[in-house]
Simulated assay, not measured.
Amino acid sequence: MSCQPGSSLEEDKAFLLLALHSSSETLGVAVQDCRDPKTSRRTATFPLGRGLSNSLLNCVEELLPAASWPQLARLAVAIGPGGFTGTRLTVVMARTLAQQLGCSLDGVSSFALMAPRLAVALSHEQMEQPFWIVKSLPRRGTVAGRYQLQMAADVGAAKAVVELESPHLLAEDFKAFPALDAQDDVAKDVEHLLELCAVAHSLGQEVAWTDVLPVYPTSPVVVSS
């Protein structure tokens, strides 16, 4: 796979993809050389908790040394919902790198990343319809996003989903159905994030770094079924 549509491998100076996920207390990092996607993919998770701010750069460098960052062709980052400080740190890092390198940055919600693996718990009929992923926040209410599996053959990714409604706080009287409880699996989700990044890159989809912001629900939104 060439990193730029229509370019030769010799001409490509940027050929690396980087995905970051820190919406929980575990940091996920995934790297791939898009000239050799089958054997170059590397992923790692780091249970940092509150230590993310002091360890983020070192953890990223374990998989991708800073000297190689100019070779990044595209980045992807999980934008939450999750811990605001932790999510914000990786979003800021990804935005800064994308800005300085002039490359695209994909921002994907943590609920959208977990949606394909959680959907296996749905019945066959429910799997063909929109469903919710929900998470209770202490003293805040319930945050939820609405999703549907993408069945089109030309999507380019086997586990693609459409995010019909991004994660937000539900009105107290709204009952989401069918609903699946959010469950973190950073190792799987950061690898999925990298897959989405690779597909978008191969299709030449450009995304401005300015469009990528953390998801941090602050007020309830009334939704209808």
Rank of each mutant, 00 (worst) to 15 (best):
R139N: 14
L101R: 12
T210P: 09
E61T: 03
Q100N: 14
R41H: 00
K135L: 14
E163A: 11
P214Y: 05
K188R: 15
V31Y: 10
S7Q: 14
S24E: 07
A30F: 00
A112F: 03
P81I: 07
S24N: 02
V29E: 03
V223M: 09
A44K: 09
E61P: 08
Q32Y: 06
A67P: 04
C103D: 11
A14F: 01
G156S: 09
I133T: 02
L27R: 05
A66P: 02
S202E: 02
G83Q: 06
Y216I: 02
V186C: 03
D184Q: 13
R117P: 01
P214W: 07
L122I: 10
G80E: 08
S2Q: 01
V134S: 09
L118S: 01
S224A: 13
R140L: 08
M1N: 09
I133N: 01
L170R: 08
V199E: 03
P47M: 06
P5D: 03
A182Y: 15
G86P: 07
D189Q: 06
N58F: 13
K159A: 14
R50P: 04
C197I: 04
K175I: 14
L118A: 02
Q183M: 08
Q129T: 05
S2C: 00
S2F: 05
V207D: 03
V120G: 06
A200R: 11
T87H: 07
A78F: 05
R139M: 02
C59H: 06
E206N: 09
A153R: 13
L170K: 06
C59W: 09
D36L: 02
L193P: 08
E128L: 14
L97F: 10
N54G: 12
A112D: 04
H21Q: 08
S219K: 15
R88P: 09
S123C: 07
D181L: 13
F46P: 03
L137D: 00
D184N: 15
L48S: 06
R139H: 13
E25G: 12
L180W: 00
S219C: 07
T90K: 04
K159G: 03
E128Y: 05
P5R: 04
A176V: 01
S104A: 11
A152F: 11
L75R: 03
H201E: 13
M93Y: 03
H201M: 09
L27D: 09
E163D: 01
P37N: 02
C197Y: 02
A187P: 10
M1G: 12
L16E: 00
L213G: 03
N58A: 15
M114I: 13
H124S: 14
A14N: 10
A19Q: 01
E62L: 12
E11Y: 02
S8N: 12
V77L: 00
A187T: 01
P178M: 02
I133M: 02
V199A: 11
A171D: 13
D185G: 07
L16K: 01
G141E: 05
V77W: 05
V60M: 11
R41E: 14
L113Q: 08
V223S: 05
M151F: 13
T218A: 12
V77F: 05
L170E: 10
P65W: 04
H168L: 14
A30Y: 00
V207Q: 14
G141I: 08
R42K: 14
R139T: 11
P65V: 06
L72V: 03
C34A: 07
E195D: 15
L170I: 05
D173V: 01
P37S: 00
A208Y: 07
L203Y: 12
S55F: 04
K175F: 07
H21P: 00
A152Y: 03
